[in-house]
Amino acid sequence: MSNTPALEVENLTKKIKRKLIIKGVSFTLYPGEVFGFLGPNGAGKTTTIRMIVGLISPTSGTIKIGGKNVRTEFTEAMRHLGCIVENPELYPYLTGWENLEHFAKMDPSIPKDRLDEVVTQVGLQNRIHDRVSTYSLGMRQRLGIAQALLGKPKVLILDEPTNGLDPAGIREMREFIRTLAREENLSVLVSSHLLSEIQLMCDRVAIISKGAVIRTDSVENLLAEQERVIWKAEPLSLAKEILEKETEVQEGLDQTLITLYDEPQLPIWNEKLVTAGVKVKEMRTQLPSLEDLFLEVTGGESID
């Protein structure tokens, strides 16, 4: 990981009709890193992303892409950026190839053979000369990425990239993004409202709620803290009594108990239960849902 940031967002705010929508968001992306932008719908993910790509002008704060300020050096900054904001919306009445040509023409620095390169990279060779209106969502997503990669950007921004894809498509997309970061040293900013997705794809993550970043950390750190163990045991009341002596216990659904995941302690707890005559039927770790994580980091603030 090099130390010159590919994308710098500093103290970004946006006011709409006197209401502060984005309240001072800052984060930095380094080359070769996949950065997750996690938050529920309406938290300000898309507004922030739209400010980064220049679709919305920020009320205050600075955004630098490859060292170029989006506001004052728009064209230079955009040369370093490729993006898909929300859905990959391309011209349905043009073929995939024509769509790429269309966007390549907008940047004279893109050489002609680059088109073939990106088409191969996303694996669309067979259908590239068909009209986009005949494409499936997954193919459109790939064409969108091909378009975003045309200008050999330093930063790739993907807003909800797996939205609407089937499981195979999601997996493929995930691998593709990781490969890009690894092999092309690209910084990728991925937004999502699904924790599981961010967890599998990203190195670092920023959690955003109500227009403010409340935590930025590596994925492992965030999850380790929040991972839980679910116990199924009989009799439940006795199990609860014993576990409560060791750690915090919550009662879950379907006759279960929930404790924090504490790897070294876990076998000891189990042993204590067994010696006390409790029949432990099931013990499994579970990632917290985004909602849990949220309630945790925001201190009980609800997602609205």
Partner: peptide
């Protein structure tokens, strides 16, 4: 309405 404006305006053209 087609959303393509988002791609059009994030290219390096004023």
């Amino acid at each position: 309405s087609g959303g393509t404006i988002k791609l059009l305006l994030t290219r390096p053209v004023k």
